[in-house]
Measured scan of single mutants.
Amino acid sequence: MAAAAAAGAGPEMVRGQVFDVGPRYTNLSYIGEGAYGMVCSAYDNVNKVRVAIKKISPFEHQTYCQRTLREIKILLRFRHENIIGINDIIRAPTIEQMKDVYIVQDLMETDLYKLLKTQHLSNDHICYFLYQILRGLKYIHSANVLHRDLKPSNLLLNTTCDLKICDFGLARVADPDHDHTGFLTEYVATRWYRAPEIMLNSKGYTKSIDIWSVGCILAEMLSNRPIFPGKHYLDQLNHILGILGSPSQEDLNCIINLKARNYLLSLPHKNKVPWNRLFPNADSKALDLLDKMLTFNPHKRIEVEQALAHPYLEQYYDPSDEPIAEAPFKFDMELDDLPKEKLKELIFEETARFQPGYRS
């Protein structure tokens, strides 16, 4: 834990890192770190609560700039109880001085990944967590956004079992017609939660990839272990087919990539493993919904509104309290091709509203 900075004593240090967030945020305490930044909790002297502050230093890398800009653009436009918001952003007053960006968010005690390492969940908890994931996802999908990296560590939890989806750095506007060349190379989302079509096709992607990830998360809540822990690309596919069985001819016809289709045709026939054999203690309604989410063919996979209306979630289902976005989200430009200098300018502009004396 960093010592509390005395008023006016300059930035606090946390594990050798400068955290320049005073005077409003003090009493910093280390939480963890990701690929390009550290997260601390801090005391907000204005709202009198502890908050989470993520320090991001992305400006050396085009990919990190892209992810940072995506996350900020999306989260500043989203407003939903099951999606983490941005409360404040701290950065230098000029673009030349801006080396880091500090993002202030609600402090959540833990995440689903940490929880599943230590606790076996009751059916009631599984049901409530799944409902909140789908409630947040309904809003995301209504904005025409794909999260693309749903996994237990991106689901934040607090002691009252509130759940918030975080990390929109890989999110995209849904565009089933656009052929994202190089899709697989830039697709760094965790393999275990990846839909089979991501490994088999490169053309376009749809909201059904997020539903697949939610199915993987439900299976993990039922058993405290990942359902498809593939060691590499082909191993991942083999794990999936080992449980779902061989795809039907109709399902194979959806695979545009001939090499991928021929690979699947070359494999020995596998039978589907019954879900109640894998999860003998699970609620039968939970397994019915799991089956509809972990469907090989993305066109037959359940959609988020149908999933919310499934009998497993009937005690929570309330369409009048499951809000959607006001308007579909649009990125003005494809960020993939922009140089990091341009992305830095866009991050600077996007964060201006939090600067003292800002006038829109």
Rank of each mutant, 00 (worst) to 15 (best):
I227E: 03
V173H: 05
L278K: 07
L258N: 09
H80G: 04
A171V: 12
A307E: 00
W275A: 01
P280I: 03
A195C: 11
V188R: 13
Y263K: 10
V14S: 03
I83S: 00
V188I: 13
P280C: 07
A4V: 12
K164R: 03
K138P: 06
E314T: 02
I31L: 02
Y43K: 11
K292M: 14
T110S: 15
C166D: 01
H239F: 07
L265P: 10
A52W: 04
G204C: 11
F331D: 06
G245A: 11
L130A: 06
I133H: 03
I240N: 13
L278F: 04
T110M: 06
E350V: 14
Q355V: 05
K138M: 07
L170Q: 14
E349M: 01
D44Q: 11
K151R: 01
H125I: 05
A309W: 02
D167Q: 08
V49C: 11
S213H: 10
A6P: 08
Y128G: 05
N271A: 02
V39C: 08
V18D: 15
G16T: 08
V14R: 07
L134E: 07
K292I: 08
P323I: 01
V14T: 09
I243P: 04
P247S: 12
F78P: 05
Y25N: 14
E341Y: 07
L335V: 08
F329T: 04
M333W: 01
Y205T: 11
N253S: 10
L313T: 03
V145N: 05
K138V: 09
T206C: 12
Q236K: 13
N144T: 13
L75Y: 13
E350R: 02
K285Q: 11
G10D: 04
D251S: 09
A219L: 04
S202I: 13
E345N: 09
D291F: 06
L163D: 00
I74W: 00
E197N: 06
S202L: 10
D149A: 15
W275H: 10
A42Y: 03
E71M: 12
T190N: 12
Y113E: 02
Q119S: 01
E305A: 13
I302G: 03
A325V: 13
I74R: 09
F348R: 03
L137I: 01
A4C: 00
E303W: 04
V273D: 01
R172F: 01
L112D: 01
L338G: 03
H178P: 12
L157M: 13
N297R: 07
I211Q: 06
I83G: 00
E60A: 14
M13H: 09
L346E: 09
Q306D: 05
L222D: 08
D318H: 11
A42L: 04
N271K: 12
G230A: 03
V273A: 09
S29G: 00
S153C: 13
Y139M: 06
I133Q: 05
F129V: 01
Y233E: 10
E81I: 03
M333F: 07
N144Q: 09
I89C: 02
N262K: 15
E96N: 11
A42Q: 01
G169K: 04
I56T: 13
T159M: 05
R194K: 13
Y36I: 15
K342W: 01
R172S: 08
D167R: 00
S57K: 15
M333I: 15
Y193W: 05
Q17P: 02
Q132N: 06
A52I: 06
F19L: 15
N253K: 12
R70T: 00
L218M: 15
S142W: 03
T94Y: 12
Y316Q: 09
K203A: 11
H269P: 10
K117T: 09
P280F: 06
P247E: 01
G136T: 04
K54R: 13
L150I: 02
V39F: 14
Q355P: 09
L146W: 07
N158E: 09
L116T: 01
F348T: 11
E60H: 14
C166V: 03
V51T: 09
K270H: 06
P319W: 01
A327I: 06
A260Q: 04
K231E: 10
Q97R: 07
M199G: 05
F78G: 08
K272I: 15
L346D: 11
I95W: 11
R67L: 07
D318T: 01
M38G: 13
Y43H: 13
A2R: 01
W275M: 10
K117N: 15
C127K: 07
V39G: 00
H141E: 07
L116Q: 14
A327C: 08
N253R: 09
A35T: 15
I217G: 08
V304F: 13
A6Q: 10
P229Q: 07
V304L: 09
A9T: 12
R24D: 05
L112F: 07
A3S: 13
S122A: 13
D111N: 12
Y30A: 00
E349H: 07
H80N: 13
M13F: 09
E345I: 11
D177H: 13
D288K: 09
T26E: 04
I31K: 07
L115M: 11
L335P: 00
K259V: 04
G32S: 12
M13N: 11
L265V: 07
T160Q: 08
Q315E: 11
A4M: 10
M98H: 11
S360T: 12
P339L: 13
Q355Y: 09
D332R: 01
R191G: 09
Q249A: 08
F348W: 04
L76C: 08
E71K: 15
E186H: 06
H125N: 13
G16F: 05
L222I: 09
A52G: 13
P229A: 10
P339N: 07
N45R: 01
E314M: 00
W212E: 11
Y358R: 09
F329L: 14
E322R: 04
L222W: 03
V188D: 14
V304E: 08
K55H: 12
M13V: 12
Y36Q: 14
V49N: 12
N281L: 08
K117R: 01
P298W: 06
G245I: 03
A52S: 14
G245Q: 02
E334C: 02
L244F: 06
T295K: 05
E341H: 12
G37E: 13
S29D: 04
G136A: 05
N82A: 08
R191F: 06
S41F: 11
V214L: 12
Y113V: 10
E186C: 02
H147K: 08
I165N: 15
Q355I: 05
E186V: 13
T351M: 01
A7P: 04
P323T: 13
Y30F: 14
L308P: 00
L313F: 09
E345R: 06
E109H: 05
K99I: 08
F59M: 13
R225G: 05
V273F: 08
E350Y: 06
M108F: 07
L218P: 02
E303G: 00
K73R: 00
E186Q: 08
V173L: 12
L346F: 00
N257L: 07
D100E: 14
D177A: 15
K164A: 06
Q119V: 04
F168A: 00
L155A: 02
W192V: 11
D111W: 00
R135N: 01
N262V: 03
E303V: 13
Y113T: 10
L308G: 11
T26V: 05
P339F: 01
T118C: 07
A6R: 07
I209L: 01
L290W: 08
M108H: 01
T68E: 15
V304K: 00
K55A: 10
